[in-house]
Design a protein around this nucleic acid. Structure first.
Lengths: 237, 237
DNA sequence: TACCCGTTATGACTTTTGTCATTGTTTACT
DNA sequence: AGTAAACAATGACAAAAGTCATAACGGGTA
């Protein structure tokens, strides 16, 4: 069996919720949410939803890491963003009532709750705060996307890779008491973040290592010289 | 004088409104809008708002064409999108209560109305329809931005330029009874859409002309062979 | 343990795209 | 209408990044 049903955690006591878009909901509004809420276990590598299919609700990640990506030309994926505990995904398709424009796959074993469309819209209707929160989430995503457009359009590979590493660090943090980024991505995944060939990523990572910016250990990346790495990324915003 | 005040058109009778995000507002809600609304005339090339400055309202384009762009590294601009009659701009900054993350400049003489933050939020508060409309506008922008990310990351220049021409056609349409796209952009502007050097755009446009995809007349581009152009763009979504 | 498959690594080479220099052409302004 | 400044065009060259081929690694499984 691929997606095992999983005992749904209680939203009211979910520790992820406090960092999520639902954080400021009153308990009154919140009670609307868990109605019919489902929860599934996804094994690493398995798909939560697929580009082109129709959504019937949105997903809230209880545990695990997820990549959101689009299928580009000639079968090459483009990773748009990552999601982790407390993040909601698939809300764009729900709000616009259109098929998913991207796919979501678990990067490691994950537990993901499902909130049916109707429950969600009920809360949205009742809570202007949630509506505003959603708008702010959307504006934030949009701003991030626009920054990425500028970078893909203008920055050389070396800078994009350095920045990608920094963003992975911001998103997933370090493993406890280390400077090792807490996520495992293949070189191909990394290539699909910054829009380049796998070989180019491999070569550049080796260079970064030689230049003592990072340390490599299989798929784990450790940041050795954060300052130099930031400089290499040539960040201007 | 740079931005002459301009007699504000009446929102209730504004022909642009019906294609805008305000289209479905009842007249009751609408009456909130024109309160304190201002209107300015911007000469071609002049700035409506600048990246980094703080917003105090949003803008609704009554007439004219506008480019929205970010300043990238080494002084190179990146055009994010265009706006025309009936479009609102600067709403992202208002919703997120942050400085503008991009600048807006008139591409031709333009008349742009200004809706103060407070008026806007008043209507937003009263009208769940407008809130939903805004969310849908945001999701649409986000989807467009994500498609652009994939294209900038994966497509070669030739395809990106062909697609840019098609998008310009979609956005601005043809001049009456012609196949000439109704907008004048410098080669540099075009380069700043697709993220390349001006010289590359010049060279590729000449190629497209040689290949009988387009015709060039100063800054005006006419589409000669739409089918081939679409094929050249290699669109897959 | 040994094997196997997906991944990582590296080299040689090609293609694409950018940069610089120079010249010709428009545009916008007075 | 005249003029300066911005823009467009083109060539020669350089740099960046992609492709292809091949080899080595590595971790899970029979």
């Amino acid at each position: 069996m691929i997606n095992k049903p999983f005992t749904a955690p209680d939203c009211a006591s979910c520790t992820s919720r406090h960092t999520s878009v639902f954080a400021d909901l009153g308990t009154g509004d919140l009670e609307k949410l868990p109605l019919e809420k489902g929860c599934n276990f996804y094994k690493s590598g398995h798909t939560i939803f697929s580009e082109g299919s129709y959504p019937s609700g949105l997903y809230c990640i209880h545990k695990g890491k997820v990549k959101i990506f689009k299928n580009g030309a000639e079968g090459k994926d483009q990773i748009l963003r990552f999601a982790k505990e407390g993040d909601i995904i698939g809300y764009k398709a729900i709000l616009s009532d259109q098929p998913y424009s991207a796919s979501a796959t678990a990067l490691e074993d994950a537990v993901v709750c499902f909130i049916p469309k109707k429950s969600y819209f009920d809360v949205l209707q009742l809570s202007p705060q949630l509506a505003l929160k959603m708008m702010q989430l959307l504006t934030h995503e949009l701003k991030t996307a626009e920054t990425r457009i500028v970078e893909l359009a203008q920055k050389p590979l070396r800078e994009r890779l350095a920045e990608a590493i920094l963003i992975l660090k911001e998103t997933f943090g370090f493993e406890e008491n280390t400077t090792t980024i807490d996520v495992s991505l293949t070189r191909e995944d990394i290539a699909n973040i910054i829009g380049t060939a796998t070989e180019s990523v491999i070569r550049l990572l080796s260079e970064f290592k030689k230049d003592k910016l990072i340390e490599l250990n299989g798929r784990k990346i450790s940041i050795v010289d954060m300052k130099k790495l930031i400089k290499t990324a040539n960040i201007d915003d």
